[in-house]
Design a protein around this nucleic acid. Structure first.
Ligand SMILES: [Mn+2]
Ligand SMILES: [Mn+2]
Ligand SMILES: [Zn+2]
Ligand SMILES: [Zn+2]
Lengths: 151, 151
DNA sequence: AGAGTTATTGAAAACAGTTTTCATTATACA
DNA sequence: TGTATAATGAAAACTGTTTTCAATAACTCT
């Protein structure tokens, strides 16, 4: 089994520009509301709920509406730029999309997210298909705990 | 890595009796509503939402209320007899609680659930703790696909 | 730059899932 | 069998999310 490999954050400002460009080049207009949501989420090191994004986004765009947060997330998800994470409490949050096959490590206290590779589940998955008769399409692997700053 | 081990269903009727007895011995009264919910969920081989349980439970107890479904699930969860599963679509369903360290394989089409052991993630988890500085408390491992009857 | 087109916005209403309130009913137990 | 009270279901309340719609702002084309 390979060592887990922590993925380092790529430059957050660059990510912001990429997301805005991606929205634009897909025919979406660049508005203050979208800018606010993108700037907050692309530079975050934590998973954020729609309500989080609304609250923080208001500091950048005073007239921001919660509805636009949802609509922007919808577009970003459709473009493969962000993804939803499911939390044990049942609440949904968003993070930058994972690239390729990666998995998550989430802080139960502050929401910090670490991304890693190296789970080596492909082999296990194939055996599970044989044993169960299922045709397996995807898997979730998420670890939960306390980050170094929270314990 | 060990072979994945599919857990076979223990006798469903016996499970029903155990759950009812557990409710009773913890000071909860045995009512028609509780009986209906327990009988349906303890004998199911699929994950069921509160709405599913209400719909199916009505066939056993004509006056069943959705509220009692939620309240019964609350008690069963508290007693460690059932647990929630999170689906990609964000919807919550319930199954018999896993015993010890087990994981899930869910059919995306019909909701059928298989339980397995053998993920061997303890070693991986320890390495991840070292690499990330997190103190890891739990993990989710769920596979999704189509069961043999659905593909 | 200005005018025209239309995508996007936010307020409000609607909706889905879940929880709370409360007067009535059913269970357990003496 | 009667009594105390846990449990019930209808309705209201609440939370997270989506839809509706008239007003606005972003892009395009002179
Ligand atoms: Mn994996
Ligand atoms: Mn495991
Ligand atoms: Zn933390
Ligand atoms: Zn199936």
């Amino acid at each position: 089994m390979p060592q887990p490999q922590i993925i380092t954050e790529s430059n957050a400002r660059q990510k912001t520009l990429q997301w805005l460009e991606s929205l634009q080049s897909n025919g979406y207009r660049l508005t203050s509301s979208r800018r606010a949501v993108v700037e907050v989420l692309a530079t975050a090191d934590q998973s954020l709920t729609a309500a989080d994004l609304y609250r923080i986004g208001l500091e950048r765009h005073k007239r921001l509406g919660l509805v636009s947060v949802y609509r922007t997330l919808e577009k970003l998800e459709e473009l493969g730029l962000v993804q939803r994470v499911h939390r044990p409490d049942g609440c949904h949050a968003y993070i930058s999309a994972l690239e390729g096959h990666q998995h998550l490590l989430l802080c139960e206290s502050c929401g910090r997210v670490e991304i890693f590779r190296g789970d080596n589940l492909k082999e296990f998955s194939r055996r599970l298909e044989g044993a169960s008769g299922f045709e397996i399409h995807e898997h979730w692997l998420q670890f939960f705990g306390l980050c170094s700053q929270c314990h």
